[in-house]
């Protein structure tokens, strides 16, 4: 049979598990040992009585409010120093963001020029041209811009001049007196 001192070790281990059946070896010892059985009963009864007689009284109602006010007054809450756990998470998020940004930069569509760029450039040039004395470089650039318009106008003017010359000659011939009249 198990010695009593070994039985007491088993009792310590199982003293808080009253609902459970004691292990077979302990049960065999208890069946044959009145002293250990009495010990076990004493612990069981005392535990039951302690649980039944632990009185809980109402705390003063003002106490909770007093505690919260005292905590606020004593030390305004400071956020805790960053924990290792949180630091690890922050690091992981930063790495993920960096990787994502790199990937996007690598695969993003090539930059196309915006269609408003040319008119804006022309407008800026015109504004510059009229707002300050024209220089040679500006004149050349302006000529280039207006060349396509200037050429048809010149041709038209030459046609008008030719027509006017023809008309003048016809009128002059009609109103000029004949020099050979006797």
């Amino acid at each position: 049979m198990m010695a009593c001192w070994i039985s007491r070790l088993w009792l310590i281990r199982h003293a808080d598990e009253y609902g459970a059946t004691p292990p077979a070896r302990l049960a065999r010892h208890l069946a044959g040992c009145a002293s250990c059985r009495a010990q076990r009963e004493m612990h069981r009864n005392l535990a039951t009585r302690l649980a039944a007689t632990a009185s809980h009284r109402e705390p003063p109602p003002f106490l909770a409010a007093r505690i919260v006010a005292a905590a606020r007054a004593a030390a305004p809450y400071r956020r805790p120093a960053v924990s290792v756990h949180r630091l690890r998470w922050t690091g992981a998020v930063m790495i993920a963001l960096t990787a994502g940004l790199s990937l996007w930069l690598a695969i993003r569509p090539a930059k196309t020029p915006r269609p408003v760029a040319a008119p804006l450039e022309l407008a800026a040039l015109v504004r510059e041209t009229i707002s300050r004395p024209m220089q040679l470089a500006d004149q050349q650039r302006l000529t280039m811009v207006t060349r396509s318009l200037a050429q048809p106008l010149e041709q038209e003017w030459q046609r008008i001049q030719a027509d006017a010359n023809g008309a003048w000659h016809t009128l002059a011939a009609d109103f000029t007196p004949s020099p050979a009249a006797p």
Binding site: C4, W5, R8, L11, I12, A15, D16, S35, A38, Q39, M42, H43, L46, A47, L50
Partner: peptide, 22 residues
């Protein structure tokens, strides 16, 4: 807890707190 209960039983005078071979 075991020792506390045992001591409590002894002080409460139940006499069951101290047994032979304990």
């Amino acid at each position: 807890l075991f020792r506390a209960r045992k001591e409590l039983a002894r002080r409460a005078g139940s006499g069951k707190g101290r047994t032979k071979g304990d």
